[in-house]
Design a binder for these strands. Structure first.
Lengths: 228, 228
DNA sequence: ACCTGAACACCGTTCAAGT
DNA sequence: ACCTGAACACCGTTCAAGT
């Protein structure tokens, strides 16, 4: 009955009956970590909705019930995977902001948007898990909330600097902020949701179009447009 | 064994052994339609991912296998429900465009965006099913593709009119179009994905904020802004 | 022609039992 | 303390059998 799925490669024959037969403890040390890694790859390979506890368990080489010792539900594993993705996302944004730190606020805002979309274009499934809302209870993960708040804060701060330096046309800043967020978020989701073909955006054009779209927005709020 | 789930209210007693005992044929006439209706409500009540064939069958009062006589898969039922939603969505957009037909192109563009978001705010689950991409194979439904192409066409046409009448600042129209699409789509998805609380948009403010965001965009592309 | 009901292969989740 | 393996209630889907 125990399905011998994997035909484990027998360890090299040893000279005598081994006292401790290659520890192979209960498993390879850190099941929690192994499950997050398996989940992360599962999301990457098959998409968010195909992350399953049983498959993650299979990949980690444990029985179906084992993950529940470390994650109380599929949602909890999802949250852990999302946190992992969010960390990488945020690291990329921060790197981009640092590179453009010498520029004026509007240039930094542009760099922000471009970095955001670049990551989203290259990691669609991970972007999806971060932002999808139904996959786990966002507010239950303090780390996730804080991490996100910081990204939002960076955006808000840069926008306010641009306003303070007189780079923007008169407008309600809060509304501009939400519009900007909606723009990049919408672009990222159009990619995830497969809308680009219908809108004449080829796959290899996605990143270039992303930049163009960010420019449309920046030019829309700037007092003096840069490119025509 | 046959779970008597519903305790069918016995029909009023008849005088003699009825020749045709209240037809109650195989079921109530049109299972296909009943399943689409059940699916539509299921999406409304519980969200897209909770639409199940078995539950739709239960609501229609048939056995688990019955739906497969009319829809070859869950995806096919999804597609039918999406088509229903798309029809309503398109009707609302068209009505809005008709009401604003006397205005200039930019005013019509605004009406378009506002109608789009209004519907999306009020019918989030149905908006989601139309646009989500992974729920069914969009391109397999010619109706869906055509219906969507027409909405896209209305947007494009209005934008070009605005350009032709000199209402727009110089810009690449295709990019403006994609940016506009991304903006409304992103706003609609932020609502679906539960981002508004994190962005300080209260539920009762969603529609007003939607208008404001559309205005930010229109003002961004217009030669002469209307409101500050 | 249309539907039933049992069946199969999957899931998430629980829990006694093993090490 | 951590994991196994059987169990339960769900799914989507198929298919013989009934009407």
């Amino acid at each position: 009955m125990p399905a011998a799925t994997k035909a484990k490669p027998r360890p090299r024959p040893q000279r005598r009956a081994p006292r401790s037969r290659i520890p192979k403890p209960y498993h390879h040390g850190d099941l929690r970590r192994a499950l997050i890694d398996a989940g992360f790859r599962l999301v990457e390979e098959r998409g968010v909705e195909r992350l399953s506890m049983r498959e993650a368990a299979r990949r980690a080489g444990v029985s179906p019930g084992a993950p529940f010792r470390h994650f109380e539900s599929r949602e909890a594993l999802m949250t852990a995977v999302a946190l992992e993705a969010q960390r990488r996302f945020r690291a990329e944004i921060e790197a981009a902001l640092q590179e453009s730190a010498s520029g004026d606020p509007l240039a930094r805002l542009r760099a922000f948007g471009v970095a955001y979309l670049r990551w989203a274009m290259r990691n669609p499934a991970h972007f999806e898990i971060i932002s999808s809302g139904k996959l786990f209870d966002y507010d239950k993960s303090a780390d996730l909330v804080r991490d996100n708040a910081e990204v939002v804060g960076m955006f808000e701060g840069t926008l306010m600097e641009a306003a303070a330096q007189g780079q923007l046309r008169p407008a309600d800043l809060k509304q501009v902020q939400i519009a900007g967020r909606a723009l990049v978020y919408g672009f990222a989701r159009m990619n995830i949701d497969g809308h680009f073909p219908r809108w004449g955006v080829a796959a290899h054009d996605a990143e270039a179009t992303a930049e163009a779209v960010v420019d449309v927005f920046i030019n829309g709020i700037a007092k003096r447009p840069r490119k025509a």
